[in-house]
Write a protein that binds this DNA or RNA. Structure first.
Lengths: 208, 208
DNA sequence: AATTCCAGAGAACAGTTGTTAACTGCATGG
DNA sequence: CCATGCAGTTAACAACTGTTCTCTGGAATT
């Protein structure tokens, strides 16, 4: 069914991925709106004009990076929210998962945190859309919990949004502590956990 | 006591302020790391070299912008948290105040949201420091509430951090809705209010 | 009144940027 | 096996960047 990619298309995708990787690397010390197309091609070792075979502009590349950074995260999120165990266990697992993901994909996390409010509109829009989808998925998962009995759809969505926002905050805090001491990272994890616990407590007493 | 500024220094501060204003305007459609020094001086109508009389670099100008945007906010925050009235009244007042501030200083809010995770380290550091001071002040104000009896200093600070983060989220959401319909802005206000209320409920049931 | 100081101007520098055009060589489909 | 398609190259373009040095006019100091 899945036919093998021709040599041609395979090579193309390889260069495309090299451009994405190089850009992601360069974006650790600047933002997308200052990323030059030549800068990227130079890092890959390819002619500037080759860039146009893959992206219309650096903004276009940015949108592709959003999909790469967030697209693969949906199953992970859904898993976390609908996992078994009591609230505290779920929180511990969620924080652990965030910390792990920041450790393995720091550049992706940095990119999202940076460009969420960054200077390039199409990229902001794409991030907003993806995060809205996350919130929707979290809402659906929350609706399955017995604690959600009596909750309106609207209230569930506002709670889901709070969780998603806080996940990003926690991820960004972990990122800042990545080059710090082990104790520093432990402190970040403890604060994030307690904040999530407080939100969960608020959830439990929301009605009535 | 306060002696009048000489004509010389007065003119200098005027140009300095013009540079800051022009930069803030240009930053509505890009981020600091892509802001050129010549771009700023051109917008003011002054020679590129004049820039150096006021700032070492655009990063330096960015740090000055952080102070301009956040420095004057301390009294307002303290007021809000320690205001009289029950929790819901305080929340309504806080959200109203945020919405108003976003309406009167949109460029400042955009700048802070954008550069908080932006590509210029000195600016990120300055914003983090100022926000930490906000959290500290909110913590002190919260400690005065009767509901804070039995709370550890550490827990109060994590709650304060949650409030500060959420204020920024709300401000950013208002900003995105600025060019939208009145109904859209109303919706943002309602969501922000309910999220704050949920946090406050979590606070009330935190102990025990 | 004479001197010092300094915000801003002007010109020039080497290096960068995005984009266009015409090209080359090789994998592909007929 | 040959003709087409297309990823990537080369060269050139005008426009832009940060930074240095020299200069000037008028406010500040003595």
């Amino acid at each position: 069914m899945s036919h093998t990619l021709g040599i041609r298309q395979a090579q193309k995708q390889k260069t495309r991925q090299a451009l994405l990787d190089a850009a992601l690397g360069l974006l650790e010390e600047q933002s997308l709106s200052s990323l030059g197309l030549r800068e990227v091609t130079r890092a890959v070792g390819v002619a500037p004009t080759a860039f146009y075979r893959h992206f219309r502009s650096t903004a276009d590349l940015g949108v592709a990076l959003v999909e790469e950074a967030l697209g693969s995260l949906h199953p992970m999120i859904e898993d976390t929210v609908s996992a078994a165990g009591d609230t505290d266990e779920r929180i511990a697992r969620a924080v652990e998962l965030i910390a792990h993901h920041v450790g393995t994909h720091p550049a992706h996390v940095r990119f999202i945190a940076r460009e969420r409010h960054g200077g390039v509109q199409p990229v902001r829009d794409e991030i907003r859309e993806q995060l809205a989808r996350f919130a929707e998925e979290v809402k659906d998962a929350l609706a399955e919990h017995p604690e959600s009995a009596g909750w309106s759809d609207d209230d569930l969505l506002m709670l889901a949004g709070l969780y998603v926002d806080h996940m990003l905050m926690a991820a960004s805090a972990f990122l800042e502590a990545l080059d710090g001491s082990e104790a520093e990272r432990e402190r970040v994890a403890r604060v994030a956990s307690r904040q999530m616990r407080l939100i969960s407590i608020g959830r439990r007493h929301w009605l009535g």
